[in-house]
């Protein structure tokens, strides 16, 4: 189809050459710069206010004093570690993925601390599978990550009470073979940080533990807090 366009007499003028100091370009640039600057400043301030990488509990409450069994079946209570920051987590030794990953990360965190700081930090692994994990197997297991780590377990009612006190949960899931010992345990994968005054202060989802420098900086901050 053909349309006859009215003939115009004006010759299209060449596009006006945009000067280098075009005010529109500079306005956009300055607005962006100010926005980015504000965002950075605000972000930094936010960070300084929150400070912690872990999820901080408020108000801080005294952590439940668990009474479990450690190496040689000796009773171990949380209160025994007063004066130290305690990082503990629930798991089981037949766990091939989550638990060894968390413990490997915690080992890196622990070993990144100075020897002086390490004396004030205790990592505790609590097995929710006392049927298969004896205090002896647990000791061999946790010390393979770091010799200072402690593995604890207890009777099922005591473990249940401990898990409940920390708001956690776990459940046994039967394996494919139907053998009584073929089961896995789905469990809370948080690491709980109890400060040297015995208050539950910070929580970490298992994926956070891989952020070693940020974990270390949290632990240092907790160790510097005034003790109550």
């Amino acid at each position: 189809m053909s349309v006859v366009s009215p003939k115009t007499t004006s010759v299209p003028s060449p596009p006006a050459k945009r000067p280098f100091f075009d005010w529109r370009v500079w306005t956009v640039a300055i607005v962006l710069l100010v926005a980015v600057g504000l965002a950075v400043l605000f972000g930094v301030k936010q960070n300084a206010q929150q400070g912690f990488f872990g999820m901080r509990l408020f108000p801080l409450k005294t952590a439940y004093d668990f009474k479990l069994h450690g190496p040689n079946d000796v009773e171990v209570r949380l209160d025994q570690f007063q004066g130290k920051a305690v990082l503990f987590l629930f798991g089981f030794t037949h766990c091939a993925n989550i638990c060894p990953t968390s413990l490997t990360n915690l080992t890196e965190v622990y070993q990144a601390l100075t020897p002086e700081e390490r004396k004030q930090v205790q990592v505790v692994f609590i097995s929710v599978d006392p049927n298969r994990d004896t205090p002896q197997t647990l000791e061999e297991y946790v010390t393979s990550f770091d010799p200072s780590f402690i593995g604890l377990t207890g009777s099922k009612p005591v473990i249940d009470q401990t898990v409940l006190a920390y708001g956690g949960s776990y459940e046994m899931v039967a394996g494919p073979t139907n053998q009584p010992n073929d089961y896995s345990v789905n469990h809370s994968a948080y690491t709980y940080l109890v400060n040297p005054s015995g208050k539950l202060e910070l929580l970490y989802g298992n994926e956070k533990l891989a952020e070693v420098p940020r974990m270390v900086s949290d632990i240092r901050a907790v160790l510097r807090e005034p003790r109550s």
Partner: peptide, 12 residues
Amino acid sequence: EGEGLKQVVGMK
């Protein structure tokens, strides 16, 4: 499965 503190992690 689940949310927050009650969340359980497992494998399948």
